[in-house]
């Protein structure tokens, strides 16, 4: 794979991660446990949509065949999406969503820290800006995890259930393919191994503070970055892409 193609794939991966995460958070609109939490969740969804837009635009420039950022978001199918499996999992209850957010934002925080030293200027700028946002996502979600673990029996039980269910999708965050190989060799990104090591430490620390037990690895599933998804993604895309697909000639 040449560097340009790898870079396009990588931008789509980052964009798709944000887009799908934002779409899932947007599902919480008017469904939050507090009005303040509704506002926080929509704020984070907005961060994600902004990040996605920046990366789709960069990918669109690189692809250079009149595919707009909107085309990339709304006209690609399941197998052409490169987000991680964690992001596309359904929201579940508030504990489940916060656990997803926590596992993902911890990853995004370390990833964007590393990408802030990328030798691709656009990616570097994107990572620096997004880091500020995901640091807040990390703080928000880790504080909730600690509250769940030190709140009531019910909140502890719900958080443990979420962790047990979602743990199987966490290896997928660190999977590398030909895209990574090419971009690591050119100094555009770093090996996921270094991110995974930091991620493991932080996750362990927060789980300990929350009296939560990290489960044994069981039925581990990977493939998101290579376009092999869970069945959930197709439904999400159906809804998200409905107008663009139903009225292909329309401008909105």
């Amino acid at each position: 794979m040449n560097t340009k193609d790898a870079l396009i794939n990588y931008c789509l991966r980052l964009a798709d991660n944000s887009m799908i995460s934002g779409q899932r958070l947007a599902e919480w609109n008017s469904c939050g446990p507090y009005l303040e939490e509704d506002i926080a969740l929509s704020n984070m969804a907005l961060d994600f949509f902004g990040q996605a837009e920046t990366m789709y635009e960069y990918a669109s420039q690189l692809i250079n065949n009149n595919k707009s950022a909107d085309d990339l978001a709304f006209r690609r199918s399941e197998r052409e999406y490169f987000n991680c499996l964690l992001a596309e999992q359904p929201n579940g209850d508030f504990a489940f969503t916060m656990m997803k957010q926590f596992l993902f934002s911890t990853y995004a925080k370390f990833l964007y820290e590393a990408l802030s030293a990328s030798n691709d200027e656009t990616l570097k700028g994107f990572a620096e800006r997004s880091l500020k946002e995901v640091k807040y996502h990390f703080r928000h979600s880790s504080e909730w995890i600690i509250r769940f673990g030190n709140g009531t029996d019910e909140s502890l039980k719900r958080a443990q259930f979420a962790l047990d269910e979602l743990w199987r999708f966490t290896d997928d965050l660190f999977c590398m393919n030909a895209t990574d190989e090419e971009l690591i060799s050119t100094g555009i990104t770093v090996s996921s191994d270094s991110i995974a090591a930091k991620w493991n430490l932080t996750v362990k620390e927060i789980m300990q503070a929350s009296h939560l037990t990290i489960p044994e690895k069981f039925n581990v599933i990977t493939g998101g970055y290579s376009g092999i998804h869970s069945e959930h993604l197709g439904h999400l895309l159906c809804e998200m892409q409905y107008l663009q697909r139903a009225y292909p000639d329309a401008k909105w």
Partner: peptide, 16 residues
Amino acid sequence: LRAPSLRAKKILMAKI
């Protein structure tokens, strides 16, 4: 969830 463009989605989200 069905907003037809990135811009439209961001604006609607911000409005809500």
